[in-house]
Amino acid sequence: MGAELKPFHVTEEPINGALYMDYVTHPEAGAVTLFAGTVREWTNGKRTMYLKYEAYVPMAEKKLAQIGDEITEKWPGSRVAIVHRIGELAISDIAVIIAVSSPHRRAAYEANEYAIEQIKKVVPIWKKEIWEDGEEWIGDQAYKPEGGKA
């Protein structure tokens, strides 16, 4: 049962959420929350063809593990696994899975949401939206290629 699974992982492979759910499930847990972030087709009226994710992998995995440590400190008895995919992702592909188990459900929900919020703040992973008529790194809108779009 996921003996070789890395609990804080950045990977180019498709993600199987069930493995992460199994990883955090144990007899003292009474709740498991499994969050899947998936690739959305439409954002602010723009149609995404696919996404490209890039990461500073060693630092990203370190930061994911740090988020895991913060969760077990804030919500004792929780167990956490987080995996983020990089590379090219198609619509509806899973980009991120966060699995949290806790003795009771409230902690599992709260800790899971905490994890995704921290990922969006501190984990060095970047997303590029590729549209029919262009592309842009998200979170990096200040950068305009020469003569670039507004």
């Binding site: 990461a55 500073y56 969006k120 703040k121 984990v123 970047w126 990096d140």
Partner: peptide, 10 residues
């Protein structure tokens, strides 16, 4: 030394 532009994972 890594330059980290605003992140956008998730």
């Amino acid at each position: 030394v890594a330059f980290i532009p605003p992140v956008s994972g998730g």
